[in-house]
């Protein structure tokens, strides 16, 4: 997969709110058909990163540095009108709350057709095929229905249909299964994985759930307080996490295989606020392996094994 030209490249991206750098110099690339997970807890900057790629940042957030490339094209500074032609066509996004993301007053058929910039009358065969592809039964009836007539899981399938009907090169999925029940989550994750492979779509999956990452991600970037702590192939990150944050995070999750009522690993303290960021590693105040150097300098993301990078002096 690494031989192909990446579908999406993010380089040295930094985002700031006022003086606080909330996303600090992060970079990654995603190949066609590959699922890259950006994983982290609330406030780690994963959703802001997604918004920056879509060029949909809230007005208070300023992009200080960084380049975003879609295939061979640098889209960092494209005028808004050109971006509008790219969004939903070459670069699509799906969100956490499918019911909130869809237009409540428009039939789902028209909403999917809109992604093709066509009236439903013209696009009906394509919309019908797409609904079948995302596993919606009885598409002829569903086409005319509105979101409130569908369950959350079905609405998420509709949003995926909207996002993928134009065959984008890149799909950004921001917590796509967080609002869904586990049995429905399993269906949606299977669907995303199948479509990514079949259509060779590069997927950036944003999630806080290590179980979801383990299920479908090929590669993982673990984010903490606006920085990438560790990145690498999913198998390596789970089998041999290098960053103390990743290791603790994994050990803190109850599993079906652990000893019931045993003490889970705990990360003491809490995630720092942007106003509390110091010059050193942002995990230093909670890190069991902290050294004097950690609070003074920022560790760089460095390769330790093939494709496996970590930003830690102790790793």
């Amino acid at each position: 997969m690494s031989n192909a030209q990446p579908a999406l490249v993010v380089e040295n991206l930094s985002l700031a709110i006022g003086p606080a750098v909330v996303v600090d110099n992060i970079g990654f690339e995603v190949a066609p058909g590959e699922v890259l997970a950006l994983v982290g807890e609330s406030g780690c900057g994963k959703s802001l990163t997604a918004q920056a790629i879509m060029r949909l940042l809230p007005p208070a957030i300023r992009q200080q540095a960084g380049r975003i490339r879609l295939g061979a094209e640098d889209i960092t500074a494209l005028p808004e009108r050109r971006m509008q032609a790219i969004r939903g066509r070459r670069l699509s996004m799906i969100f956490q709350e499918p019911q909130a993301a869809l237009d409540p007053l428009t039939s789902i058929g028209s909403q999917i057709a809109e992604a093709l910039r066509q009236p439903l009358a013209e696009a009906r065969p394509a919309v019908r095929r797409m609904l079948e592809e995302v596993g919606i039964s009885d598409p002829d009836r569903r086409i005319a229905q509105r979101p409130f007539e569908l369950s959350g899981g079905m609405c998420q399938r509709v949003m995926i249909a909207c996002a993928l009907i134009s065959r984008p090169a890149v799909l950004i999925a921001d917590e796509p299964t967080t609002a869904l029940d586990v049995t429905i989550q399993a269906q949606i994750l299977d669907l995303l994985r199948r479509l990514a492979i079949e259509r060779q779509t590069a997927v950036v999956l944003i999630t806080h759930d290590m179980g979801v990452v383990a299920d479908i991600a090929d590669r993982v970037c673990v984010m903490y307080a606006g920085r990438i702590a560790e990145s690498g192939p999913a198998a390596d990150i789970f089998a041999a996490p290098l960053h103390p944050y990743t290791a603790l995070l994994l050990a803190s999750i109850p599993r079906l295989s652990d000893v019931p009522k045993s003490a889970l690993a705990v990360i003491e303290g809490r995630v720092p606020q942007p106003s509390e960021y110091g010059p050193g590693c942002r995990f230093a105040n909670r890190c069991p392996r902290v050294m004097p150097r950690c609070t003074a300098e920022t560790p760089k993301l460095e390769a330790r094994a093939a494709g496996h990078q970590v930003a830690c002096f102790a790793a």
């Binding site: 586990v182 049995t183 990452v213 383990a214 089998a239 599993r255």
Partner: peptide, 27 residues
């Protein structure tokens, strides 16, 4: 059984080897 099979285990080796018991349909 379906509920247990749907729990995503935070370990790709375990998770990807799991037999899938896909529950079709909605609640």
């Amino acid at each position: 059984r379906a509920l247990l099979a749907a729990v995503p285990e935070p370990d790709p080796a375990v998770q990807r080897a799991k037999p899938r018991v896909p529950l079709s349909g909605e609640i």
